[in-house]
Amino acid sequence: MVAQNIGFGIIALMMVVGALRVVTTTNVVHAALWLVVVLSGGAAQYVLLGAEFIAITQVLVYVGAVMVLFLFGIMLTRTRIGREGGLNNPHWKWGIPVALLTLAATVLTLVSSFGGEKLPEDAAPISTQAVSDQIFGPYLLPFWALSFVLLAAVIGAIVLARKD
């Protein structure tokens, strides 16, 4: 358990630093690369939480596909690579109090409701089979809805991005 806590600490630190760099760096490509760090850290946390399948999906979909999309987006919407100014709003400072307020509200709630509650140590791991039983059992309807969302997204992306 100690080892897991140390692992958690290192990965969490990495994720927080990465996330901060995503929102503060002056180079868009670097922001995308720092996002990779955060997302990979997320995958590692899922492994700690015994969710291997989600971790793999996270790596495949986020770190793989979504990041490629982002890099293409960056490539197609810019003329130069490197530092650039003007990535922030003129009133970007307003973001700090808003974020702190949000953080305060959530942390207060979490501390007051979960205090020192521990995760069950000897919990049986949730197998991928159980997840698939859930998806194709009680949660079939959301799954269908999701399929339509994806279809709509595909068509929408084509319609939006096509040249005419």
Binding site: A99, L101, T102, A104, S112
Partner: peptide, 26 residues
């Protein structure tokens, strides 16, 4: 008409309401 300003207002308002609820309930 600026999206980020709307975002800031949205999150700030939601947090304030949440904080109020937390304080009231505890």
């Amino acid at each position: 008409g600026k999206v980020s300003q709307y975002g800031a207002l949205l999150f700030a308002a939601a947090s304030v309401v949440a904080l109020v609820l937390v304080i009231v309930n505890t």
